[in-house]
């Protein structure tokens, strides 16, 4: 290990952590989820979610803020949320963008490749209803025009805190239900 790597690691040991307390779960999101998430699905998943992100036509603004969730301030993984590389490993599809017609099939195939139980979170104003791109010949509409959506997180782009609030509501909607362990 190089001297500079050692210095960085050593300093990291003595510095106060940058990570901030997690925000509370968003109430609006909790309400939307209360209707959407079924109990059986909640029982089967623990308090941990694997997220597969799909850019279905975004301007890349939402992706940048999703990236920010992994930085030291938000540290998404401490909350049991982590991003996975394949829909086969995912509980949640986090979809951004107005769904472009050129991405429609890819989104549908990704959705079909995700095992049940699964949730779809539509992230950003474009994913809600197409946003500023809604009237285009090249846009299918918001995410719900293509696959069923369980939760919308609005914003252009939503801030990392807003994204966390939404995702935490998703986690809590599982937690509040009694978990039965079958033997």
């Amino acid at each position: 290990m190089g001297a500079s790597v050692r210095n960085f690691l050593l300093e990291g040991l003595f510095r106060k952590p940058l990570t901030e307390p997690a925000p509370g779960a968003s109430e609006a999101a909790a309400q939307e989820l209360a209707q959407a998430v079924d109990r059986a699905a909640r029982r089967r998943l623990g308090r941990s979610l694997s997220i597969r992100q799909v850019d279905a036509g975004s301007c890349n603004g939402c992706e940048l803020e999703i990236h920010a969730l992994n930085n030291a301030f938000y540290d998404l993984e401490r909350l049991g949320l982590h991003f996975v590389a394949s829909p086969r490993h995912a509980d949640v599809l986090l979809v951004t963008g107005p769904v472009t017609k050129n991405m429609r099939e890819a989104l549908e195939r990704t959705y079909n490749a995700t095992p049940n139980p699964k949730w779809v979170v539509a992230l950003g104003d474009c994913a809600f209803d197409g946003g500023v791109f809604a009237d285009s010949y090249a846009v299918a509409g918001g995410v719900s025009a293509v696959v069923p959506v369980d939760l919308h997180i609005r914003g252009c782009p939503p801030t990392p805190t807003q994204i966390l609030e939404g995702l935490l509501a998703l986690l809590e909607s599982q937690e509040t239900q009694p978990v039965t362990v079958s033997r």
């Binding site: 301007c59 791109f133 010949y137």
Partner: peptide, 28 residues
């Protein structure tokens, strides 16, 4: 794959809406 028809949306837009669209051509 992420073709959104931006030039087509620009045509017919007023300047204020054009600026809104322009701000979302590439988020970064």
């Amino acid at each position: 794959y992420v073709h959104k028809g931006i030039e087509s949306l620009m045509a017919g837009a007023d300047i204020a809406r054009g600026a809104q669209i322009a701000a979302r051509i590439s988020g970064d």
